[in-house]
Design a binder for these strands. Structure first.
Lengths: 215, 215
DNA sequence: CAGCATCCGCTTTGATACTG
DNA sequence: CAGTATCAAAGCGGATGCTG
């Protein structure tokens, strides 16, 4: 990107991460840890190969990411956030919070990756009964299953399957998010294509921290 | 900007504010409140006129800003952040924090506006002796004077002049910032073109919250 | 003067194909 | 797997002109 040529901290930041695709590359590395070129490509549907290569070069030069030769049995290059790159997490978290109300619209062509939803769910959900015994919910909403767990009264989310889920939600991502956010009533869940297995009371316990305004 | 077409809160946010210049327009409105087209133009040196008009249209359509007809004696249009736009402040604050270490380099062609520095100073400075009587420092560093004041143990900054400053710093922006951040020793201030009037002990009292790593 | 719209050359991006 | 190469299309920057 061409520099803004301003002596301003915001402009200087955007000189580094303001390019198209750049923050989404940081997102991928923040969510998934070390990634191969191919992993990044899969997590950034639509990016041109030359652009990905160029952005990675620029980010490395700026000290945001580092290249790393994986240990012998793997024999590939891994891209990883540096300490400086990790410090971009607050920016990404604020963008998630700001973007959540926009998740009520899902365009037909929108790509879906479960790992994009994991961070958002952890930021927005809260355990309304922190002293009760922990619960586990499994979501089947994207390309991979997601687990929501309560631990010490706080919510933790991760990709993967649960050993024993207290509830399982299966369906398209948008209604599932709407149900968890309280925008869809549990009674309307089935009408929105959601299959619910388990104790319905869990939905009351795990809910949105602050109900987002209806746009 | 072309949509990323991803069902991801970060991508949805960037679909709205990821365009070139867009976040800097929000910065101007966040820092200065209601602005005329001409004010925005002055605060965004280098932006093409058609781009500013186009971005303003997009931001209005996205509900981030609103147009407002100023009261009769002024007879002009004011652009203002909506409540939704105000919620972008955390994003801008994180970008300021992340970009601060980059302020150690000031390219020769970099434009300087005092109001860009005001927010950064408020975020990074702290009053190390909150119980002592309040102090006022005036900076003559950019196109407008800046006032730094302690109030109830917290730092407040604003554009303007102080009625009675306990100290006044005059000089180029970068060394002044370096002095306040502790990257330049008070003894080296004069060698960096800084003129200091007042009690030098104030520099010990008002300092950087966390010393940024030397790049 | 404030608030744009138009035109044009240049740069960046997107889509695809190809390579060590 | 991890990129380069190529080229058309879109976006941007700078200048200028128009309208209330």
């Amino acid at each position: 990107m061409r520099s803004y040529d301003e002596y301003c901290a915001i402009a200087k930041s955007l000189d580094v991460v303001g390019d198209r695709w750049t923050l989404l590359i940081v997102r991928e590395l923040a969510l998934r840890g070390g990634c191969r070129y191919t992993d990044l490509r899969n997590g950034l549907p639509g990016i041109a190969s030359n652009l990905l290569a160029e952005r990675l070069r620029e980010l490395e030069h700026a000290g945001v990411i580092a290249r790393e030769d994986a240990p012998p049995p793997i024999a590939t290059t891994l891209f990883r956030l540096t300490a400086r790159g990790e410090q971009l997490r607050p920016v990404l978290e604020d963008l998630i919070r700001w973007g959540l109300p926009l998740m009520t619209e899902q365009k037909p062509g929108d790509a879906v990756r479960s790992h994009w939803l994991v961070w958002a769910l952890e930021l927005m959900l809260t355990d309304r009964r922190p002293d009760a015994s922990p619960v586990t919910v499994e979501l089947q909403a994207g390309d991979e299953p997601i687990v929501i767990e309560t631990r010490d009264g706080t919510i933790h989310t991760r990709l993967g399957r649960a050993d024993s889920a207290d509830a399982t939600l299966t369906g398209p991502p948008r209604p599932i998010l709407g149900l968890l956010l309280g925008l869809i009533q549990p009674g309307d869940a089935k009408a929105n294509g959601i299959d619910y297995q388990g104790d319905p009371a869990i939905l009351d316990r795990i809910g949105a921290e602050t109900t987002p305004p209806p746009s």
